[in-house]
């Protein structure tokens, strides 16, 4: 029983990464109609960012937690202004070519510099060691990741549901065209939203650095699962993406416990089931398809 509980906890921690990545991917898709295949690469850059700051500049992981997402957010905004916004008028195939191309370029650049082996990264001192959770003890760092991602998701949710900006983003995510016709300058929000999504990916990367292998392919391995998470949660549904992130993390961990042979495919079986029963995703709405 303790083993299972521990697995569930592991699953929630994985789910934290899924949630942060799916959240950004979902907002970007909703607002721009762009499926960002480079999302995993920015997660990878986030982890490398933390590594480079520590390794080359001696700056602590805590600082990286703020600096790296901010820098990547700006990179994202520049990318949106220079390349991504051109996709709007083009066939969706170009969306795939551009963002997948960006992912490959970023991956290879890091491979060129750091090779394929993983870079060592130790946990910040403050979060080293274990925490006794009653039934079992659990690494402090993992507990921090889980709580931190819940807080971030919660903050995003508050901004989205309680502020004027959030209302505009929700409306534009649901139906960009209609929002234009109702006097909202959707174009003005597109760049910051894209940057924000990228910043979240970077943040997930910084969080991953001390507990996952930091190497150039870490994002590519994860992004496929994230797409499944977004589809399960419902395309364009922010709440759905976050919830699906934690649920998928938990289910895969439990599946791993009972059916280790299926652990890699469980998430896709779940996706197929959701698509069969609720084609718009668990929290998706048919209306969302307009976006």
């Amino acid at each position: 029983m303790d083993g299972l509980l521990q697995q569930i906890f592991n699953g929630l921690v994985s789910g934290s990464f899924y949630a942060l990545l799916a959240l950004g991917l979902s907002v970007i898709f909703g607002m721009l109609g762009v499926v960002n295949f480079a999302h995993g690469a920015f997660y990878m850059l986030g982890a490398f960012g933390a590594f480079i700051l520590l390794d080359s500049f001696g700056l602590s992981w805590w600082l990286a937690l703020f600096v790296v997402p901010a820098v990547l957010g700006i990179v994202g905004m520049v990318l949106e202004r220079t390349l991504v916004h051109r996709l709007v008028a083009l066939d969706p195939l170009y969306n795939f070519l551009l963002t997948f191309g960006i992912a490959l370029i970023l991956q290879d650049l890091m491979r060129l510099r750091y090779g394929v082996q993983s870079q060592p990264f130790s946990r910040p001192e403050l979060l080293d060691g274990s925490l006794n959770l009653g039934l079992f003890s659990y690494p402090k760092y993992q507990v921090f990741v889980l709580l931190f991602s819940i807080v971030i998701s919660g903050l995003v949710w508050l901004v989205l549901t309680r502020t004027r900006v959030g209302m505009v983003v929700r409306a534009a995510t649901e139906r960009a065209d209609l929002s234009q016709a109702l006097g909202i300058n959707v174009g003005r929000w597109v760049t910051p939203v894209f940057g924000f999504g990228i910043a979240l990916a970077g943040l997930a990367g910084v969080l991953a650095a001390p507990m996952r292998a930091v190497n150039s392919s870490m994002g590519g391995d994860l992004i496929i699962v994230i797409f499944a998470v977004v589809v399960i949660g419902g395309l364009g549904s922010v709440f759905g993406s976050v919830t699906a992130g934690y649920v998928v993390g938990m289910l895969t961990a439990v599946g791993n416990f009972y059916l280790p042979a299926l652990s890699q495919s469980l998430v896709f079986i779940l996706m197929a089931l959701v698509l069969l029963l609720r084609p718009a995703g668990l929290f998706g709405r048919e209306e969302g398809v307009h976006a």
Binding site: M167, V168, A171, E174, R175, L182, G183, I184, R285
Partner: peptide
């Protein structure tokens, strides 16, 4: 909008 309540639908524009 499904993701906006009635009052938000009114005050969005």
């Amino acid at each position: 909008y499904a993701s906006l309540n009635v009052e938000e639908n009114l005050t969005l524009p």
